[in-house]
């Protein structure tokens, strides 16, 4: 078996440890003897969805986001939309997550149109939502996801999509409606950056299962020794539960 991962804009959307998620996807495949190949697709490079089984897109800084918007005006917007409708799993974090939505309105009233592949929009606010946080995951009943969020954009979901889960501690999408992230087709969008997957190995395996099932019809991942990962997860979960 083999999985081809596309890392979109790896040199631009790489804020704070987002590549940790790619490292995690790769290692958990390799440890099971499944081969994996990751390619970066950056500004000015073509994105051909048929070449990939899984796409990752991370968060970035405002300065670089402007560079990116120009690139998205080209064919990439249509290709990303087509890939999502075709069921290719996407993991999108923070700025990359926002970018899949309809638009971003800055706090001083400027509106930027984004890819519009998923039904949600984001509004900038003066307050930054920063900290360790925890949420449920509707795909994995009973599992709590721990992560770190750092965003000033407030995201509001449209009626045709579902959140990834419910916020237990922290802010989530907007700090108001207790939702966190988005689920649509095989898109997993979340504000939890950096070490999301390494500390939540069940979520990593779930996304891998979705990708492998889509490609090979069925998939049963071998269990791994997750003791170190679970220790890191339990530490943060119990710390947040004490708060």
């Amino acid at each position: 078996m083999e999985l081809r991962i596309c890392h979109l804009y790896p040199d631009v959307l790489n804020l704070y440890g987002d590549r940790g998620n790619v490292i995690c996807l790769e290692q958990r495949l390799r440890w099971r003897g499944i081969s994996v190949e990751t390619s970066g697709v950056s500004i000015g490079q073509p994105f051909c969805p048929e070449n990939y089984d899984l796409c990752f897109i991370g968060g970035g800084q405002d300065f670089e986001q402007e560079v990116l918007l120009a690139d998205l005006k080209g064919e990439k917007t249509q290709q990303i939309k087509a890939a999502i409708e075709d069921g290719i799993p996407f993991l999108a974090i923070c700025g990359g997550y926002q970018m899949l939505g309809q638009s971003y309105k800055t706090w001083d009233g400027h509106q930027f149109d984004f890819i519009g592949a998923v039904d949600f929009y984001t509004v900038g606010s003066a307050q930054r939502m920063i900290g360790n946080y925890m949420f449920t995951c509707e795909d994995l009943p009973g599992t709590k996801i721990v992560g770190f969020e750092n965003h000033s954009g407030k995201t509001y979901l449209g009626p045709s999509v579902k959140p990834m889960g419910k916020v237990l501690k922290g802010y989530g999408n907007n700090g108001e409606d207790k939702t966190e992230g988005v689920r649509y087709q095989n898109v997993f969008g979340t504000y939890s950056h950096g070490c999301l997957l390494p500390k939540n190995p069940q979520l990593c395996d779930y996304i891998l299962t979705v990708a492998l099932t889509r490609k090979y019809g069925q998939c049963q991942l071998q269990p791994l020794d997750d003791s170190l990962e679970n220790n890191a997860h339990h530490y943060m979960q119990s710390r947040l539960e004490r708060q």
Partner: peptide, 9 residues
């Protein structure tokens, strides 16, 4: 720094 995700970079 409260966010330790930088160790992944």
């Amino acid at each position: 720094g409260k966010d330790v995700s930088w160790i992944w970079d």
